[in-house]
């Protein structure tokens, strides 16, 4: 079975990977951990400084995406030595690229966190996971690690107290 796991650079995604690595998977399962790096701003600026800044921010996000995917890959390899894992880093709109990547690889299933970096726990499922669930031709699992949800709420509360 071929499974695509879509992540971003959020804490939630790291917890999704952690919880998935603890599940039991059949021996012939192959995983592809995908992260899509998106441009920071939708408009183009002529200001050179801004362009420079944007490029820096983009490169940083990409480095972070590679780091998270590699960490996930190592985690899966350690806990599920019988499974195959590889990573795929893409650039563009995550909504399209995740589905595109699943179609290209002929994946049986897409696993995606209910929300990621862009949304706090106020929103129960993010735009990306909703779009993927709607547009994908294969089975989609919206992953909500129970503890991650609670922890994130807790850290959110703590942050409010600090402010």
């Amino acid at each position: 079975m071929k499974i695509v796991i879509a992540v971003d650079d959020s804490l939630y995604s790291a917890k999704v990977l952690e919880s998935l690595s603890l599940r039991q998977w059949p021996i012939d399962t192959a995983f592809k951990i995908i992260s899509v790096v998106q441009n920071a701003s939708p408009f183009e600026s002529k200001n050179e400084n801004w362009k420079e800044f944007e490029k820096l921010a983009f490169d940083r996000r990409k480095r972070l995406a590679i780091e998270i995917c590699t960490q996930g890959k190592n985690l899966f390899k350690a806990r599920l030595p019988h499974c195959n894992v590889h990573i795929d880093i893409r650039e563009g709109d995550p909504r399209d690229k995740i589905v595109e990547s699943a179609v290209e690889w002929m994946a049986d299933k897409i696993l995606i966190g209910a929300h990621g970096r862009d949304l706090s726990d106020r929103v129960l499922w993010g735009g990306v996971s909703r779009a993927v669930a709607t547009n994908a031709k294969c089975t989609v699992q919206i992953v909500r690690p129970a503890r991650a949800h609670k922890d994130e709420k807790q850290s959110h509360k703590e942050a409010v107290i600090v402010i």
Partner: peptide, 12 residues
Amino acid sequence: AGNSSCSVEIIK
């Protein structure tokens, strides 16, 4: 899928 508090798998 949007409102539950656990993981939801939508089979297609």
